[in-house]
Amino acid sequence: MTDVGNSPRFSTRGLALSVALALLVGLAIGFGVSRLAAPSTPADDSAAAGFARDMSTHHAQAVAMGMIAAKKGLAPEVRTLGEDIALTQQGQIGIMSQWLRDWSLNLNSSAKPMAWMPDGDKSALNGNLMPGMATPQEMTALENASGKTVDTLFLEMMIKHHLGGVHMVDAVLTATDDPDVLWLAKGMKTRQTLEISEMQKLQTTLAKR
């Protein structure tokens, strides 16, 4: 080493400082990256956000149907099922609304219903009505029905409604990796699939009653 004066003291102090500096920079980068990466939430045009909005609308109609069945279904099974569906789906609307709040997204969007769906199944849309949703006329018919007609109409309409709902759930399951969305969507699929077969059995049972 030609540089006699720079040898022992530099290597001790300089090395220590370099290490400390490297640590600090490393920490800062790591800290920053983790903070930026960890809470990244779904965007306004994401499938998760679209699902939260559209499924809330879809659910709201199921709540309406379920309440009618709970109040004036003839068969006790229909009343119980209506109450179960209405309360469950209203609770799920609350969960989905809170996602949007947590993500700082608006509950309202100018996007068309189901615009988020990756398979582009817009043909199933009837105006603003998503797959399985009843028309205003069908809803009025259910509201004005009485006796056994309530049970018949409710089971028909809710089976169709659930089938449409499961179709939308399938779409979001392939389009998001948000753990909360996956959790609720899987829960919906399991439950509604079960209820579809339950309602189909009930149709057979009630036809004989």
Binding site: P39, L100, R101, D102, W103, S104, L105, N106, L107
Partner: peptide, 10 residues
Amino acid sequence: FKPGGAGYDW
């Protein structure tokens, strides 16, 4: 500026 928690400023 982090998103989340504050909700949408309607």
